[in-house]
Simulated assay, not measured.
Amino acid sequence: MAMLEVKNLGISFGGLRAVDDFNLSIEQGQLYGLIGPNGAGKTTIFNMLTGVYKPTDGKIFLDGEDITGKSTIEINKEGIARTFQNIRLFSDLSVLDNVKAGLHNQKEYEYSTLTGILRLPRYHQAEKAMNEKAMELLKVFELDGEADYKASNLPYGKQRKLEIARALATNPKLLLLDEPAAGMNPNETKELMETIHFVRDNFHMTILLIEHDMKLVSGICEKLTVLNFGQVLACGETSDVLRNPEVVKAYLGE
C-alpha cells in the first residue's frame, strides 16, 4: 500500500479549473518530485494535501486513511508536515523555540492552559522534555550551537534547515518541501541535497518536493510527476521524465 495515494484530485476557483484529475502514488521511503512551470498548480496541490484548500473533487489517502477535506491541524496530526517556498519561521523567537513550536501537536508534551499559568509540575515536565527533544533535532542539523539565537539572525541556508527541523518535530510520515532550494547559492544547494538525503535515510521519511532547480531534482528524486496547466503531463522515473520531449518543450524550454 502506498504511503500517499491521490485519486482524481481537482479544485476550481470560480470558473477557473486550477487542478484537474490529478493522480499520484508515493511509496514509503520514496523521494518524489513534483515539477512544472510557474502557475502549473504545484503549490495548489500542496495546499490541498495539507488542508489549506478543500478539493472540489477527488480523494487523498495517507497510509490508507481518507484525509480528504480535513483541517490543517488534523492532517498534521495524521502525519503530513510541510515547509514553504518563502521561509515561514517565527523570526523573533529563538531557534530552540521554533522547533519546540513543532512539538506542541504531540500528546506527550501537552498540558492545559491553567497548568501553564500556574507552572504546575506537569508544565515543567513537558517543557523539559520538549527542550531535550528540540535540542536533539537541532544537533542533527548542526544548529544546537545556535539554539539561543533569534531565528532571523541565522544565515539563509541555516534558516532552511531550521524550517525542516521544525517540520520534523511534528513527527510526520510524509514531509512536503516547497522549493527548498529557492534563493540558495550552489554551495547551499549542495548542502541541502545532503540534508534531504540524510532526513530520508535517518528519519525513515517519505518526501515529496516541489523544485525548479533541475540539478537538485535530478540528483535526489527517484520519481517525478510533471504538472502543466493543472494537469499531469508526465510521470515516472526521473531520468525518463526529464528526457520526455513533451516535458522538455513545456517545462525545460529546450
Results as ranks from 00 to 15, higher is better:
Leu233Ser: 00
Glu65Asn: 14
Ile80Lys: 12
Val199Phe: 12
Ala126Glu: 12
Lys128Leu: 07
Pro245Ile: 13
Leu162Phe: 07
Thr238Pro: 09
Val217Asp: 03
Leu143Arg: 05
Asn202Trp: 08
Glu179Val: 04
Asn131Thr: 05
Arg119Met: 08
Leu31Phe: 09
Thr43Cys: 01
Asn86Pro: 08
Gly157Ala: 15
Pro55Glu: 05
Val199Leu: 12
Phe229Tyr: 15
Cys235Lys: 15
Asp21Glu: 11
Glu179Asn: 05
His124Pro: 02
Asn185Gly: 10
Pro37Ala: 14
Lys107Thr: 12
Gly145Val: 06
His197Ala: 00
Lys133Leu: 02
Ala147Tyr: 13
Val226Gly: 02
Asn228Asp: 15
Phe13Lys: 11
Gly33Phe: 04
Leu24Tyr: 01
Glu237Gln: 15
Lys59Tyr: 07
Leu9His: 05
Asp66Arg: 07
Leu176Thr: 09
Ala165His: 02
Ala134Ile: 02
Glu65Met: 11
Gln159Leu: 08
Glu237Val: 13
Glu65Tyr: 07
Tyr123Lys: 13
Thr68Glu: 11
Gly219Trp: 03
Arg88Leu: 05
Phe141His: 00
Lys59Ser: 08
Leu242Arg: 02
Glu142Ala: 01
Arg17Asn: 12
Lys100Tyr: 05
Ala134Gln: 04
Gly33Ala: 14
Leu252Ile: 12
Ala147Asp: 09
Val99His: 12
Ala101Asp: 04
Leu49Gln: 03
Ile11Cys: 12
Lys42Ile: 02
His197Glu: 01
Thr170His: 01
Lys158Leu: 14
Thr238Arg: 12
Ala165Ile: 05
Arg166Trp: 08
Gly116Tyr: 13
Gly64Cys: 08
Leu137Ser: 00
Leu138Gly: 01
Tyr251Asp: 10
Ile26Gly: 02
Gln125Cys: 08
Asp201Phe: 02
Glu191Met: 09
Cys235Thr: 14
Arg17Thr: 08
Ile67Trp: 05
Leu176Ala: 11
Asn202Pro: 01
Ala167Thr: 12
Lys249Asp: 06
Met135Pro: 02
Gly116Val: 14
Val232Cys: 13
Gly36Asp: 09
Arg17Pro: 01
Leu103Glu: 00
Arg200Ala: 15
Cys235Asp: 12
Phe61Leu: 15
Leu34Thr: 10
Ser152Ala: 13
